[in-house]
């Protein structure tokens, strides 16, 4: 069960996914978003979608000195916030720039692959692909 980027060529740059991500974190605005839509070198060249791709062997988790990033069964990580010391090494470890930062809690923001953002993509740029029982896993954390 994970979020998949299907076709960034169809992205119009509305950023509805980014706003959705903050809403599912029970906030309004963009403070908690774990997905980014930015231009691929100027808007005339279209957009790129930056989001965790649920690596099987995630470098961010390996970089964490406090074992605060728990590896999910279906790939990617979940943050144990109480263990995180806010060092930011996970951000540097992700060459996709898919580990975002929450200035308010001083901790990383990483996609949990809940699929909420995909409901707001009118053009199927991103899609939620269901697989195993990882939903339960998200709720447990």
């Amino acid at each position: 069960m994970r979020l998949e980027v299907i076709d960034t060529e169809k992205c119009v740059g509305c950023q509805s996914c980014m706003f959705a991500c903050t809403r599912i974190h029970k906030e309004a605005g963009l403070s908690k978003t774990c997905i980014a839509v930015k231009s691929a070198g100027g808007i005339q060249r279209g957009f790129m979608t930056v989001v965790c791709r649920a690596c099987e062997d995630p470098p961010c988790a390996r970089a964490c000195p406090e074992d605060a990033l728990i590896i999910r069964k279906s790939g990617g990580v979940l943050l144990k916030a109480e263990k995180c010391n806010g060092c930011g090494l996970c951000v540097n470890a992700c060459i996709l720039s898919a580990v975002f930062w929450d200035d308010e809690s001083n901790k990383p923001l990483i996609c949990r692959h809940c699929g909420y953002c995909a409901k707001y993509c009118p053009y199927t740029v991103i899609e939620f692909q269901k697989g195993d029982d990882a939903e339960q896993e998200v709720e447990n954390v």
């Binding site: 119009v12 740059g13 509305c14 950023q15 706003f19 053009y123």
Partner: peptide
């Protein structure tokens, strides 16, 4: 699209 407008 403009930011925060799904219409495009």
């Amino acid at each position: 699209a403009c930011a925060h407008c799904p219409v495009g």
